[in-house]
Simulated assay, not measured.
Amino acid sequence: MRISRDKLNKLAHTVADTLAEIDEVEFLEERNTIRQEARKALEKLLMDELKLDAAARLKIASQRRIIPEGSQEWDILYRKYYNDEVKKLGL
């Protein structure tokens, strides 16, 4: 999934703001540092998701016959291969 830089920053701000509102959470670093780390973590998750998506699509494309994207068979294979890739990562 592609998310714009502005949306990613907004999401990171929301994470930092939400954490700041929790009484049990105490920041040992500046709020901006927390926001930057949240943004890095989100970017890594999105990059990992793109790799999983690409691997699943590659497996479908490597089938002996062409399976049209959007068909029921393609959707089933995509979910299967995507979940297989997630399991390989131990998630």
Rank of each mutant, 00 (worst) to 15 (best):
M1D: 13
M1V: 11
I3P: 03
S4C: 12
S4E: 13
R5D: 07
R5W: 11
R5K: 12
R5P: 06
D6Q: 10
K7H: 14
K7C: 14
L8M: 04
L8N: 03
K10E: 10
K10A: 06
L11R: 07
L11G: 05
A12D: 01
A12S: 00
T14N: 09
V15Q: 00
A16L: 08
T18A: 04
T18D: 10
T18K: 01
L19H: 01
A20N: 11
A20D: 14
E21R: 08
D23R: 05
E24S: 13
V25L: 05
V25T: 03
E26M: 07
E26Y: 01
F27G: 00
E30V: 07
E30K: 00
N32P: 12
T33S: 12
T33L: 14
I34R: 00
R35Y: 09
R35H: 05
R35D: 02
Q36T: 13
Q36F: 13
E37G: 10
R39V: 11
A41M: 15
L42T: 01
K44Q: 15
L45S: 07
D48M: 10
D48C: 07
E49V: 12
L50R: 14
K51A: 08
D53L: 05
R57Q: 12
A61N: 09
S62N: 13
Q63M: 03
I66H: 06
P68N: 12
E69I: 14
E69R: 06
Q72V: 15
W74V: 06
L77H: 01
Y78N: 06
Y78S: 02
R79F: 07
R79M: 03
K80G: 10
Y81F: 11
Y81L: 04
Y82I: 03
N83L: 15
D84R: 09
E85L: 06
E85H: 08
V86F: 02
V86M: 07
V86Y: 02
K88Q: 01
K88H: 00
K88M: 04
K88L: 08
G90S: 04
L91S: 01
L91W: 07
